[in-house]
Measured scan of single mutants.
Amino acid sequence: IRCIGVSNRDFVEGMSGGTWVDVVLEHGGCVTVMAQDKPTVDIELVTTTVSNMAEVRSYCYEASISDMASDSRCPTQGEAYLDKQSDTQYVCKRTLVDRGWGNGCGLFGKGSLVTCAKFTCSKKMTGKSIQPENLEYRIMLSVHGSQHSGMIVNDTGYETDENRAKVEVTPNSPRAEATLGGFGSLGLDCEPRTGLDFSDLYYLTMNNKHWLVHKEWFHDIPLPWHAGADTGTPHWNNKEALVEFKDAHAKRQTVVVLGSQEGAVHTALAGALEAEMDGAKGKLFSGHLKCRLKMDKLRLKGVSYSLCTAAFTFTKVPAETLHGTVTVEVQYAGTDGPCKIPVQMAVDMQTLTPVGRLITANPVITESTENSKMMLELDPPFGDSYIVIGVGDKKITHHWHRSGSTIGKAFEATVRGAKRMAVLGDTAWDFGSVGGVFNSLGKGIHQIFGAAFKSLFGGMSWFSQILIGTLLVWLGLNTKNGSISLTCLALGGVMIFLSTAVSA
């Protein structure tokens, strides 16, 4: 259960009878995928790494000078000259100064003066180019299975845990398959586009800190620079940016070097996208990844198990997540596992009318040892309800109150669905055939309105939902006002479609 501690969480529900669903994975976010007769899966884009970055340009932001020398000439005696002028490691300046009897010249006039100092770069920052084909995306998957609280967001041991898996995709191999043991396998067909235009970005490294910066900004930095990788004795261009020549006297000129420019660069980098280094690879934390999940090989585990009949206890007080759902960790005293956990939410304890829904599909106890633990997640209705676990006299209950409203949740879900469709863009549509167009249209309606429909009408039977949709269509056909007619027709059509397409 990876997503319960992530604030940016998206719930995606598969269409009834569908074998695939489109998701948008982004750094700092987590996606929970639910479908009829399929286990619930949490998917998170953990890291995006980039390798084989080529150094484009380096800037010196802290330097020192040494070996200063000057040469001067009297008027009419030609130009002052130093051998160091031809050495690229030196920074030199030529000027004219007033000369006369007082400073060793027989004539009054302008004399030539040249001053040089050896330039040494102490600290530099480097910009590297990123090729999209060198990106690698690491995705962690977790099935809502027989897990306890100690396994949440624990990325170790996934090789031997059938509840978890790690997959890596690249532009050259965008397809992967996550093996989930008894739950089958989940196929991923990803489109490795981060949403960032790397043709316009460089990877900047300064003092063990890293950013993504725009090329134009990078090339306009007014500091000494050299092109390409460091060859040991780089040729620094624009050395004068960190060196200041003071007022010249008759035979000498003082040279000083400016202080470190790291603070000024940090100020200019305010708002830039931060990154990290992992050995020789860069780690990015921006952008998104679009994936199509193929769920035809994914299956529920323990459908044929019998119900657990022994007593359950709450190991922890049920807690609310950031998303309005409830996490419950229970301990089973029996030894008759594997068995299914009898769990439901009810409005009252007399009729036990089921409300809400299970995020953890078909929760089971897989071990036959005593005191096995299991964590599950529920989506309670707004208002008061009861969490009921167990059967008969051994069942345990917990009162729950959820604040908020169904309308607010439906609106929030619609906005999130619209954002998801905007990110998917043209990849969500198939114009290759008439059937493809209608299929894409259905998927689009489901992406945007599916979660809201589930919130508003999830407790009704599909037949009642179709009746309401048919009534809206009838009202649309018999209303003389054009805008009201079109609105009723659209709402009725969407409702009829979703009542037959969205899983219960």
Rank of each mutant, 00 (worst) to 15 (best):
T19M: 09
Q261P: 10
G145E: 05
L180H: 08
G408H: 12
D87E: 15
L307R: 14
K246W: 07
Q465I: 02
H148A: 11
D220C: 08
F11C: 11
V97P: 03
T360N: 07
K246R: 14
V46E: 13
E62K: 12
H266K: 13
G279F: 06
L376E: 04
I365F: 02
C488E: 08
T500Q: 11
S51A: 11
V364H: 02
K340C: 07
I484F: 09
A319V: 15
T325W: 11
C74A: 05
T353K: 02
T194N: 11
H27M: 13
R164G: 08
G476N: 10
K454T: 13
E136S: 15
L96Q: 06
E370M: 13
D42C: 06
D200S: 14
A428Q: 05
G435T: 09
A69I: 12
P342F: 08
G18S: 00
M375Y: 14
L498H: 13
P318Y: 06
H323E: 07
E320G: 07
E370A: 08
I396P: 00
S368G: 14
G302F: 09
T179Q: 06
Y158F: 07
S433G: 00
K209L: 00
T95S: 13
D296P: 01
G263K: 11
K209M: 08
L489W: 13
P338G: 03
T397D: 01
D426H: 15
A410M: 12
G459N: 10
H446T: 00
A311T: 12
L96R: 02
H219Q: 14
V91C: 12
G157Y: 02
M495F: 04
G390F: 06
G404R: 00
G279K: 12
A80I: 12
T95D: 07
N52A: 01
G17C: 06
G263F: 11
F119E: 05
Y305N: 07
T170P: 04
I396R: 08
S146N: 08
V12G: 04
S306T: 07
G435H: 10
P234D: 09
S72P: 01
S122Y: 14
V21A: 03
V388M: 14
I139E: 04
S433W: 04
F312R: 04
V21W: 05
H235N: 15
G334H: 15
G14V: 10
M68W: 12
F457L: 13
K409H: 14
M345I: 15
M15Y: 04
T479D: 03
S112K: 01
S260V: 09
F119D: 08
A361Y: 12
L298K: 04
S461T: 14
G469F: 08
V56F: 03
E240G: 15
K251Q: 14
L188T: 01
D336N: 13
K290A: 05
D200K: 03
N154I: 02
V31F: 08
H148S: 06
V330L: 15
S385I: 09
N362V: 02
G492H: 11
G232L: 14
S440D: 09
L107F: 12
F198C: 06
P342H: 07
A422T: 09
D98N: 11
Y137Q: 03
C92R: 11
S306K: 00
Y305C: 11
N481Q: 06
K301P: 00
C3D: 11
T156Y: 01
A333H: 11
G390P: 03
Q36I: 14
S142Q: 03
V153F: 07
G182H: 02
A63F: 10
Q344N: 12
V114G: 03
K480Q: 07
L471G: 14
P354H: 09
R292C: 05
G157P: 14
V415E: 08
G459H: 13
L486C: 14
L223N: 10
A264L: 07
D98T: 04
A310R: 03
K409N: 00
K443H: 14
D161E: 15
A490Q: 10
E367F: 01
G5C: 05
L223D: 11
A63D: 09
Q465M: 08
A63V: 13
T267H: 12
H219D: 02
G102Y: 06
H266T: 13
S483M: 08
D426M: 12
E216T: 04
